[in-house]
Simulated assay, not measured.
Amino acid sequence: MRFALDESHEDFASSIDALLTKSDMPTVIRAWNTGDTEPGLTVWQRLAETGVNGLLVSEEHDGLGADAVDLVVALEQLGRHAVPGPVVETVAVAPALLSAVAPERLAALASGSLATVAAAPHTPFAVDADSVDLVLNVDGDTVSAATAGEQHSSVDLARRLFEVSSAETLGSTSFEAAFDLGALATAAQLQGLGRTLLDTSVEYVQQRKQFGRVIGSFQAIKHHLADVAVALEMARPLLHGAALAVRDGLPTASRDVSAAKVACGDAAYLAARTALQVHGAIGYTQEYDLSLWITKTRALVTAWGTPDFHRSRVVAALESGVAS
């Protein structure tokens, strides 16, 4: 199995990175945190123009008709820049559900509409249900359009969580494939978040001085950052392998997605803890940009399936003989 991305993937990633680099994401995120979604929606519209929103939407419905590998490439970049809003739900989960129950709604997603999804027990609340064009609720195999209810807080201020109530039944479909896409996309976001946390930490330790020396010269600091780099690099093949398994419809796809979600989550969480250690308490203050990445990482580690759930799914797959 070949894990290397081809030139088209690299170009796609670079275009998303360039767009988001120019967008002053810390300012956009802080606005979203306070309920001012206009700057964020402007970024989302620009992403739609590059094809991100319509990645998994068929060409028949004005999308790109891309696959899980393209999804991972895009979502890693959205993670690197900590894009606010229902990222996984809009780009991955909603297109999978609507393709089965309401394909006439797909064109709106491809053109820039946002969607969110609640699907108990793993995703009981809908992210940013007050700021989207479509709220979906999944109950077993039944998919319904829904309305937002009571709001709950998250450690990530850019993730407003809402209870939902089903309003209109759209149809029935198996949720497993959509859930796997949600977990895979979340893993890609975590990989991107971890990379930014590592890069930011490396830059910081090359500047901060203590006892007359930059702290990056201390052996202990080097070891901590090296551990993060190794964890992220070891997670990447699992992430790409899971994307290929989903793309090709392999029987190991669910197991591979769970392995990727655990590995990327663990690596990103290690990156967040290490970043906080090397920066000190300032790293967690709301005024410091790093905190926006740390809190999002903490929230996404348990999104679309907790680490315990995904570890259990890997074990169950191995015990049942789904091992290759």
Score class of each variant (00 low, 15 high):
Arg2Lys: 15
Glu7Tyr: 14
Phe12Ala: 12
Ala13Cys: 00
Ile16Gly: 06
Leu19Val: 01
Lys22Val: 01
Trp32Arg: 06
Trp32Ala: 12
Asp36Ile: 07
Glu38Cys: 01
Pro39Gly: 14
Val43Pro: 02
Arg46Glu: 14
Gly51Cys: 13
Leu56Met: 08
Glu59Pro: 05
His61Ser: 04
His61Phe: 11
Asp62Tyr: 12
Gly63Gln: 00
Leu64Ile: 08
Leu64Cys: 01
Ala66Tyr: 00
Leu71His: 02
Ala74Cys: 10
Glu76Leu: 05
His81Ile: 02
Ala92Asp: 02
Pro95Trp: 07
Pro95Leu: 11
Ala96Leu: 09
Leu97Trp: 01
Ala110Leu: 07
Ser113Gln: 09
Val117Asn: 06
Thr123Ile: 12
Pro124Thr: 09
Asp128Ile: 03
Leu134Ile: 03
Val138Asp: 14
Val138Pro: 14
Asp139Ile: 10
Asp139Ser: 09
Val143Lys: 04
Ala146Gly: 04
Gln151Lys: 15
Ser166Phe: 07
Ala167Asn: 10
Ala167Gln: 11
Thr169Glu: 15
Gly171Thr: 12
Ser172Ala: 15
Ser172Glu: 15
Thr173Gln: 04
Ser174Val: 12
Phe179Trp: 06
Asp180Trp: 13
Leu184Cys: 09
Ala185Cys: 04
Thr186Asn: 07
Ala187Trp: 07
Leu190Trp: 12
Gln191Cys: 01
Gly192Ile: 03
Leu193His: 12
Leu197Thr: 00
Thr200Gln: 13
Thr200Asn: 13
Glu203Met: 07
Gln206Leu: 15
Gln207Tyr: 13
Gln207Phe: 14
Arg208Pro: 00
Arg208His: 14
Lys222Pro: 12
Lys222Gln: 15
His224Arg: 15
Asp227Met: 05
Gly241Lys: 00
Ala243Asn: 06
Leu244His: 13
Ala245Ser: 15
Arg247Tyr: 02
Arg247Leu: 07
Arg255Glu: 11
Ser258Lys: 12
Ala260Lys: 08
Ala260Cys: 06
Lys261Pro: 08
Ala267Ser: 06
Ala271Tyr: 14
Arg273Thr: 09
Arg273Glu: 15
Leu276Arg: 13
Gln277Ala: 07
His279Ile: 03
Gly280Ala: 00
Ala281Glu: 11
Tyr284Leu: 13
Gln286Gly: 01
Leu290Ser: 01
Leu292Cys: 04
Trp293Ser: 07
Thr297Met: 03
Ala299Glu: 10
Asp308Leu: 11
Phe309His: 13
Val314Leu: 02
Val314Asn: 06
Val315Gln: 14
